[in-house]
Amino acid sequence: MELFNQIFVDPFVTMYELPDLLLQTLWEGFVSGTLYSLIALGFVLIFKASSVFNFAQGIMVVFAALTLVGLHELGVPAYLALLLTLGVMYLLAFSVERLVLRHMVNQPDIILFMTTIGLTFILIGAGELVFGGEPKAMITEELGLPTGSSDWDVFGGIVIFQHIDIAAAVIAFLLILGLAIFFNKTRIGRALRAVADDHQAALSVGISLNQIWVIVWFAAGIVALATGIMWAAKSDVSFALQVVALKALPVLVLGGFTSIPGAIVGGLIIGFSEKLFDLYWGVPILGGGTESWFAFIVALLFLLYRPEGLFGEKHIERI
């Protein structure tokens, strides 16, 4: 009976009694949800265009942020460092296509997936070798991003909004808007959608697959850089972030691997639910720290119910 109360009564009583705490938690859930969405977005971009499940996306986030900070530490001005990092991400996209993907056409998807795990380790090793393994602080102020926070008095309590979080949400929104326009209104965007639809048909009308792959990996690199900046502004730049980046996987499962709206909705669901669960159920009943696995368990249960995700296409299998 006590457990019943703990599960079904107490959390809601707390929510009712401390609405400011609830609002604060929802806001935090929203912010981390946006970041999960952004990482998942990078996955979806690459998966749509090349059906490669890019495990390295999470590392690309850290790698981009680390390159940016590392270049700045070497004395490069912040905005120039940003441009140079974009250059590095392009170089990465180019060499991945040239050295890896080009040789792996027609391989089973699972082999390609394992290749990206290998890529993950190359990026970790290279990043730490060049820029050192210790955590670094993000150059938030130099990039002109807002710092500080504002309080909002509501329900007799205070809700704190970090300005960087607001900026993160705005930038994420702009990025998704930009990608949507790019996909729907430009020539390259049309080519990308054609490739996503059918590789062979796209090839037959003269679209260069290799070029498309470079563009897609570069786009994912840009998304990774934006995510990396936002994320590192909240904590530090270090490869410990890769564990958090793995949370993009349950987000993908919820949203479906090929759906951009799915990535966004999935990210927000995971963001909200894991924060709420940890505060109201995890800490009182399970002793806290549930954020490390909650998203994965949600994805697992969801998969049992709907294996293709919220927005994914249903697969019909044939022999």
Binding site: V100, G118, L119, T120, A126
Partner: peptide, 8 residues
């Protein structure tokens, strides 16, 4: 790095 390269 070597292990990653070997895998790929």
């Amino acid at each position: 790095i070597i292990i990653g390269v070997l895998i790929v």
